[in-house]
Nucleic acid binder design. Structure first.
Lengths: 247, 247
DNA sequence: GCATACTATAATGCATGCGGTAATGTCCTC
DNA sequence: GAGGACATTACCGCATGCATTATAGTATGC
């Protein structure tokens, strides 16, 4: 038994009860249904298979996922925390739309945070192995562009940014930016084909990569900032021009 | 009944089912136990009554709050999402410590985001009514300082920043910064008495307030950034000097 | 005394039960 | 046909039940 010897040892005061073996901070190995539900729902949402505006009650979703309502509820709470769905008491969960206004918000934050983060990464003087995935992503962007594969280009672009985040010394920042990427993902899918071929982006990534490799933090920050600002301008003007206030 | 006429109308495709009366986006009016649990636990944690490192199993917490495990679990999931607790499978929930490293992360993000946000607020040319709470908070800071009431000073400082966030045109940014404030709250409580009297801070708030009232975005940004940078430096040096790597 | 194997216990993940109540459909009136 | 009162239904919030399984306690051997 766990604590039969002290059945009611006031929890209010029981700081750091028992062994301090923090070691076992191992997170769950995703074998749970909650995690399965979370993953599957998130994948459906980000893949636009559950489009913005889609709505379903808990029993419906539970049936879809072949499990009971309990794990579904818990997964939905997480997704709500990440800004992907909203829970409306008698109407179940609803996949949130991504309005132009949301994209404005998201890009403003990204513009403020990513360059700062990239500069930090540069300052940490990442070695070639660390930057490998970034270089690979950049090359893949070029290759995808050459063969006109916009989806592959977008995927590689995403990989570049996420791999850079993986190098971040600021985990909190990286996690948050990652959820912003998730939120923006669907809108980018849609605008991808509404814009001119993203030639410049690839070149910008190359230059950022060079600055990173050189460990030049200020330069990295500056390059990254203009990269983000340009991307934000492009995206937002596409949204306003095409009147896509809701995606 | 809700949809008895179409008992299994494929949820996968049932986008925007029924009426589009989005109006009813009214959030729950907090009458739920989940919300109660969330609020109470958060209050205990931020008030340091549940200190970092405190650990309790779900049944224990449920007993403390006089409710069943279900709402407790859901509240804990939210708190985990906000970075206040961590859930360790067989050990219940644990109140996260705030390490110096965490504070570094938090302040780096704040330094990047808050000035940007403040500049936006300035650009929106807030009227006197909007800035009223900020002015009041600033005065209260001074008054608290005059009578040596550090707690009141800290409270007023917090109010200043949160009230400014309330004016933010970027809700997403404001929400995130608010949760960062929550995370940093306890560490600030502790360092509050380890530092010199925060005289400068009040003056800085005054100048920021002037820039806001003048609608001078660049100036607001600059002032806010140096305000944040100084605060970060102070706090982090206190933490390192006093060897408080964990709070 | 210390390491090891075994047993008992209780925390968790999830399913299910259940009352309240909002939302819907029906029926009626105008 | 539009609007309103009423009845019905099934969703949600929460409690509870249950199998699994990690963990603490116990016993054993050295």
């Amino acid at each position: 038994m766990r604590r039969s010897a002290r059945p009611r040892d006031p929890p209010q005061l029981a700081n750091k009860k028992m062994t301090d073996n923090e070691l076992q901070a191992r997170r769950r190995k995703t074998a749970t249904r909650v995690d399965d539900a979370y993953r599957r729902l998130k994948s459906e949402i980000l893949g636009n298979r559950m489009a913005p505006g889609f709505q379903a009650t808990e029993p419906e979703i539970a049936a879809m996922l072949a499990m009971s309502r309990t794990p579904v509820r818990e997964a939905l709470i997480r997704l709500e925390g990440e800004g992907l769905v909203t829970l409306i008491p008698r109407h179940g969960a609803r996949v949130l739309p991504v309005a132009a206004e949301d994209m404005r918000e998201i890009y403003q934050i990204l513009t403020a945070l990513e360059p700062e983060d990239a500069a930090d990464v540069a300052a940490s003087r990442p070695d070639e192995a660390a930057l490998g995935p970034l270089a690979a992503a950049t090359e893949e962007m070029q290759a995808a562009l050459d063969r006109g594969d916009l989806d592959a280009w977008a995927g590689a672009d995403d990989r570049f940014h996420r791999n850079l985040l993986a190098l971040s010394p600021n985990r909190r920042l990286a996690d948050f930016v990652n959820t912003l990427f998730d939120q923006a993902h669907r809108a980018r899918l849609i605008t991808l084909r509404l814009r001119a071929a993203p030639n410049r982006s690839t070149a910008e990534h190359r230059r950022i990569l060079e600055a990173l490799a050189a460990g030049d933090a200020p330069k990295t920050r500056k390059l990254f900032r203009s990269h983000r600002e340009r991307a934000a301008d492009e995206l937002l003007s596409i949204l306003s021009v095409s009147g896509l206030s809701n995606l």
